[in-house]
């Protein structure tokens, strides 16, 4: 780092390798990056996709994406009860991937991850599927990503919001936390975390509909918990429903610079909306794990 140099660091363009091109050259990738619909279309999550591709490119992994050949895994249809549409989508994707002889898949979406990993095998799609939190953890453990040279997160308060389809659905709790631990930040745990984590409110196809009438929206309940945790407000935490047990956070902290970390596009939307609703967006930011790692590694351009 040389603070005296005013010009921007050298940057390079990444041409994302597409599976069809690789197949035409008779090549096969080490890993298929399944982008997912949110990663491809949602403006906020596209930044996560791009950050993750920077990491893939940076470590020199031989990867590819399906590009225009990717289609919805069918997860929202299945959770909403439309089994027919789910299986149509699944068969189509399985045909595509089996045609390319795909063996290993990484994805930044826990819903795509869960569906491909658990529900595709019965329909003929057997792959090794890993979530990007696990993949990032491996890169860090192997030393391929040093999480240094970029933005420093030292001393910043970060709380990780467990995604249901990563956590309870597939028992992945530690990988995202180990990734965050590498940032050398102040990690604080919400009272409802890991297996007791509270849903952001988007799962089960809720993302695409208005919530049923109630007292408040689920993402507000969860955001309040995240903000109270980051701020260290014990009284706010004590009043949270559902948990009967003790534990209170220590003294109050300024929220400035705090981060809610997520590993799921729908949690991202819900928590960001919640932070805006609470008018804290100037202080608290919501980031995906891949974005944090790319920032810390200094590979954004």
């Amino acid at each position: 780092m040389s603070p005296s140099t005013p010009e921007a660091p050298a940057k390079k363009q990444i041409n994302v390798p597409v599976m069809a091109d690789l197949a035409a050259r008779n090549e096969s990738p080490e890993i298929l990056f399944w982008v997912g619909c949110a990663g491809a279309f949602d403006d906020r999550y596209k930044r996560v996709t791009r950050a993750f591709v920077r990491i893939l490119d940076h470590v020199g992994t031989k990867y590819a994406v399906l590009g225009l050949e990717e289609s919805c895994t069918g997860d929202p249809a299945k959770r909403a009860g439309n089994e027919f549409l789910f299986q149509m989508q699944a068969m189509q994707n399985i045909t595509t991937m089996n045609g390319y002889g795909i063996k290993k898949i990484v994805t930044a979406c826990p819903h795509c991850f869960n569906t491909i990993k658990n529900e595709y095998p019965a329909l003929g799609g057997d792959y090794e599927v890993i979530h990007h939190s696990t993949y990032l953890q491996q890169l860090i453990n192997e030393g391929k990503v040093g999480v240094s040279g970029g933005e420093s997160f030292k001393g910043r308060r970060i709380t990780f919001h467990d995604s249901c389809y990563l956590g309870r659905a597939n028992d992945i709790y530690e990988a995202p936390r180990e990734v965050l631990a590498a940032l050398d930040a102040d990690l604080v745990e919400m009272k409802r975390s890991r297996a007791n984590g509270l849903c952001c409110g988007a799962g089960g196809a809720q993302m695409w509909k208005e919530p049923e009438p109630g007292k408040k929206d689920i993402n507000i309940e969860r955001t309040e918990e995240a903000l109270a945790t980051l701020a260290g407000k014990a009284d706010a935490l004590a009043n949270l429903g559902g948990v009967e047990t003790e534990t209170a956070a220590p003294g109050a902290h300024d929220l400035q610079g705090s981060i809610i970390a997520v590993g799921c596009p729908f949690c991202m939307t819900m928590m960001s909306d919640g932070v805006k609703n609470k008018e804290q967006e100037s202080k608290v930011q919501v980031f995906d794990l891949a974005e944090l790692v790319a920032s810390a590694e200094g590979i954004n351009a």
């Binding site: 390079k12 363009q13 791009r50 591709v53």
Partner: peptide, 29 residues
């Protein structure tokens, strides 16, 4: 092929103009 009303032909637009900071890959021992 997506739960939102986006055109399938825009699915790969996220990869347009994608730049990264030049940084040598970490050499692992």
């Amino acid at each position: 092929g997506a739960p939102w009303a986006f055109s399938p032909s825009d699915r790969f637009n996220w990869a347009d103009d994608l730049f990264a900071a030049e940084k040598p890959a970490k050499i692992t021992v």
